[in-house]
Amino acid sequence: MASSSHRLTVGRPALGPVGTIRETIKSVVQRRRLLLYLTIARVRKDGGNTIIGNFWLILDPALQLVIYYFLVGIVFNRPQPDFPLFLFAAILPWRWFTTALSSATESIRARNKVMRQIAFPQIVLPLSAIAASGTGFLFGLIPLFSLYLVYTDRLTIWVTALPLVAAVQILWTLPFAILFSAISVFVRDIGNFLRHALRLLFYVSPALFSYERIEGILGPNPPAHLLLDLNPMAHILTAYRNILYEGRAADWGVLLIVALASIPFTIFSIYLFRRLAPSFVKVL
């Protein structure tokens, strides 16, 4: 005991922006177990109190597919060939994006009790929200791949590029999740606002329709078209659809640009989070 090195545990001098970000990443790596346990707890909570439990992880996205199939395919009568696969290739990742953001937004407030008792890198909370909703995404792949039993000719080698596209999606989920989780401590209304913002983003993303159709609608209107171009999810969803539905390579150049563009946002969000973090306990 007495021989253990007595390093400084509280009261480290403030670091500059670069130091702050490096230290944050280091602290997350150190607490990777915490990230794991928080993720397990969250996944279990989602299925915890229902009769069929975690089977909802599979059933939820499947039911959502049925609803959108009914809405777009039958009511609007705008089906594409092999429409269920067309829809699912985009809806499933979109679901991940929205659940990650909405649960990340609540993540800090939900753990306010422990934040008052233990000092730990709070940034693991929004990260675990992304990881937990990622689990939902993985389970959603079960109904997705079941569709290939029907549309056998749609299954190509490009499906193996799925982790790559998913990685780009994570890169873009990170900054928003971190940012919203921190801001919602101070402005609780952000959760309400986010629901509608995501809804709008959903309709200007090629989720229910193809990129070309959205472009056709928004094309004559330059500001709206700009919105589509700047929407990273539009490019990510299109990439998913390329590899899962059309069975061809995604536009890797565009995807690379989208991936690189996320980096400044992520750095900014981490820095802002760290600047706001000392006030969390006081405000909660």
Partner: peptide
């Protein structure tokens, strides 16, 4: 400045 590992017994079972 606090040196060494810290244990807090504040609110039990908060985590």
């Amino acid at each position: 400045a606090v040196y060494g590992s810290i244990a807090t017994l504040l609110q039990l079972g908060a985590g």
